[in-house]
Design a binder for these strands. Sequence first.
DNA 1: AATAGTGGTAACCTGTACGTAACTAACGAC
DNA 2: GTCGTTAGTTACGTACAGGTTACCACTATT
Lengths: 114, 114
Amino acid sequence: MTNDTFKLDKCPMTRTMAILGSKWKPVIIYTLSKRHLRFGQLAAQMPLISRKVLTDQLKELEEDNILLREAYNELPPRVEYSLTAKGLALLPILQQMCEWNKQFEGHVGACEAR
Amino acid sequence: MTNDTFKLDKCPMTRTMAILGSKWKPVIIYTLSKRHLRFGQLAAQMPLISRKVLTDQLKELEEDNILLREAYNELPPRVEYSLTAKGLALLPILQQMCEWNKQFEGHVGACEAR
DNA sequence: AATAGTGGTAACCTGTACGTAACTAACGAC
DNA sequence: GTCGTTAGTTACGTACAGGTTACCACTATT
C-alpha cells in the first residue's frame, strides 16, 4: 500500500492511503504528536516495532514531508523527530479513526501508542 | 495490513487501518456511498480492479460489517451491495482524507472512484 | 582494553496482498 | 444444442511489506 505508484493514483483517498496505510505509520504519527522524540525514545515507546522497520517508516514519512528529522552533531549522536504542518493536519483523521472504532467495535482499547 | 491479528491490536487506529487499509477498500466504500450497486456495476465502475480481488475485498468488508450483501434468488443471479451504518460512518473519514490530500498535495484529482 | 550508549545499516527470510487467466452453474432465448 | 448473462471460483505466480539477527562508527567512562 505504501507503493509509490499509489501515490500517483487518480484518487486522493488512495494517495492518502499510500502515505498513511501501513501497519505502524499512524501510531508513529500519533506518538510524535505529543512531543518531539529522539529515535531511541520512539523505539522505547513502541517496543513491538523493530528498529529496522522503525527506521524505514521514519524515512518514508520524512520523504513524504510528514515529519522532520533533525540530526545534531553531538556525541553520542542525537536525532529528533517532529511532525510538520502536513503531519499535524493528519491528526484529526487519526482521531476520527479512533472514535469510529470505539463507537462500532466497543471500547477495546485507548488511543495509546502501543 | 488487512491481517486478522491487526484487528485485535491494542490501538484503535491500527484496528481501523486493518479494516480500511487496503488498496481498494476506500474506493469501494466511496463508490457504494452513492447508491446500492450490483456486483457487475461495481466492477464496471472500477475497471482497474480484477473480479477476483473485488470479490475478496467485498467478502472481507462484509465480514467486517461494513457493507451488506443481498443475493436475490433470480436468474440470471442478482447480488446487491450497500453500506451498513458502520460503513456509512466511515465516509467522513474518507472525506477528510480527500481534503487533506488536496490541501497538501495540490489538486491533482477529484474524489472519483477510479 | 573493554563496556556502554547512540542511531542506525546489511543480509536474509516469510507471509500475503494483489494480479492473471481460465473455468463454473443455472436458466432462457434462439 | 449452443449462446449470452450473472456472479462468482480455482489455480497459479510475484512483488513487497514487515520481521529477525548481527553488525558498525564514534566517544566517554571505567
